[in-house]
Amino acid sequence: MSKTPLPDDKAMLDDIAAIVEKTGCERKNLIPVLQNIQDRFLYLSEDAIKILSGHFGLSSCEIYGVATFYNQFRFNPPGKHQVKICLGTACHVKGGDIILENFERKLKIKTGHTTEDREFSIDKVACIGCCALAPAVVIDEKTHAHMTPTKIEGIFLGYEIEKEMKIREEKKRDDKDTPA
């Protein structure tokens, strides 16, 4: 069932094993180690949790239970573009959950997950501090105000165009580098 790890995944697991090696196996060290791994690799993979479970003598599901209690841990690699949907009070009143649902449907993933091509990930956040713009969505660093389902289509079209342009530019550069 377990897939063979990608080359960078293997490097990551070796790195994690090294981090774990350096810490004592008392229970109090669990959360600091989890934070350390989260900071470095931006998520906790299943294999990482297995390594920890061996080190601390806890079952992996126990560690998972601890980690899921805190919002700061994620269990999927974040996407290239991180979509954060605000569900604070103002955005909730203005229908933030509908926006969230639309993003989930559009990307065909659930909250906290990442698309298969690792382009986008969706997260819900509490207040992002711009209640006057509700319902608001932050993609990477850019805030999108007064979201509507139609605007979502527009945003994704923008990203698609950007991606297409990049591919074309690269192609042009390649063509220049290797003249026929």
């Binding site: 069932m1 949790i49 079952s59 992996s60 599901c61 998972y64 239970g65 899921t68």
Partner: peptide, 23 residues
């Protein structure tokens, strides 16, 4: 002497999880 299932998540999302023990 150890857990094969656990509470995961928080608030209304809390529920039982079997994480990692599917073999």
């Amino acid at each position: 002497g150890r857990l094969y299932l656990t509470f995961a998540g928080r608030g209304v999302d809390m529920g039982i999880s079997f994480f990692g023990d599917s073999d």
